[in-house]
Simulated scan of single mutants.
Amino acid sequence: MEKRKILVVDDESRMRKLVRDFLTKQGFEVLEAGDGEAALDIFYADKDIVLLILDVMMPKMDGWQVCREIRSHSKVPIIMLTARGDERDELLGFELGVDEYISKPFSPKILVARVEAILRRTSQTDADGVLRAGGVEINKVSHIASIDGEPMELSYKEFELLAYFMENQGIALSREKILNSVWNYDYFGDARTIDTHVKKLRSKMGEKGEYIKTIWGMGYKFEVEG
């Protein structure tokens, strides 16, 4: 089986090595660039790159410029790294189509988990925009959800919530993150609205409602056993 290629872009060689070592242990092939211009050269020269890990603060071209350029040509998943915990940066990242946003310092194990989750998500969604996991199927184009072939009657937000869970299988999601992603940043409701929707969603999923695990004191995680 051919190794999947990931491009790591950071002007700090120690950071690149740290990320490379952890990704290599997980079976990925890692390409490296020390600035934005070099990153674009490598990206356009190698059509097999499946994901980019991109630092924001870099010489020649910063991460945002690189992201804009790549997004004008490709939907390849992008994880942004930044030393600043600035919400404006995070919002800009999502507006540019960034798939994940991680602030430094971070745990390399968490980064690897995010990489694997994003690649699992993109591989689970076929060309028709269908997500499948453990007998649950969601068609994001036709907005139809089913369990073992039987359609479910879901509200718009229940559908969006289930799709978000399935796209992030195995990742513990805080209530705030779910609110921001499913209800968007301009939603200022109480986080308990998540609990209400999850309760309704679980009941409509029957036995498969057990796929939505409660992470006490934090939020939820969608996980299919076996």
Rank of each mutant, 00 (worst) to 15 (best):
M80N: 07
D86W: 00
L111M: 14
V50C: 14
E90A: 13
I53V: 15
S72V: 04
L96D: 00
H73I: 07
I110Y: 09
E100V: 02
M61V: 04
I70N: 12
I102T: 13
G93T: 00
Y44S: 06
I102P: 14
R88Y: 04
D46G: 02
E90M: 14
L96E: 04
M58Y: 06
M57F: 06
K75I: 10
L91V: 13
I49E: 07
F106A: 15
E116F: 02
A117P: 08
V50E: 11
Q124C: 06
V66W: 08
R68D: 03
E87N: 01
E90H: 03
R120V: 00
E95A: 03
G63W: 01
S72H: 05
E116G: 05
K60A: 03
D62A: 07
D89W: 00
D86P: 03
H73T: 13
R71F: 00
I79V: 11
L111R: 04
D89T: 04
E100M: 01
L119E: 09
W64Q: 09
K60D: 04
L96Q: 10
P59D: 01
L52A: 11
I110Q: 08
V50M: 05
P59E: 01
G93A: 04
D99F: 00
I70P: 00
L92W: 00
A83G: 15
G93K: 01
E69I: 06
K109A: 09
L52T: 10
E100W: 03
P59K: 02
H73P: 04
L96H: 06
F94P: 01
R120K: 02
L92Q: 15
K109W: 00
G85A: 13
D55I: 03
S107G: 12
M58S: 10
L119H: 03
C67G: 10
S103T: 15
R88S: 09
R120Q: 04
S107P: 09
Q65E: 15
P77S: 13
I118L: 15
Q65R: 14
R84S: 08
A117L: 05
F43E: 04
V112N: 02
E100G: 06
L111F: 08
K104R: 15
D89M: 06
I79F: 01
I49V: 11
P77Y: 07
K109F: 08
M61T: 08
S72L: 12
V115Q: 01
R120F: 05
V50Y: 09
T122I: 10
E100P: 05
S74Y: 06
T122E: 12
E100N: 07
F94A: 02
A83R: 02
F94Y: 15
M57H: 10
L51Y: 07
P105M: 08
V66N: 13
I102M: 14
I79M: 00
V98P: 07
E116K: 11
I49L: 06
M57P: 11
T82W: 02
V56Q: 11
G97S: 07
V98G: 09
K75N: 12
L119P: 11
I49W: 09
S103E: 15
L92F: 03
Y44D: 08
K47G: 09
K75Q: 12
K60T: 03
L52D: 11
Q65D: 12
D99K: 07
L51H: 13
G85I: 03
L96T: 00
L81C: 07
E100I: 00
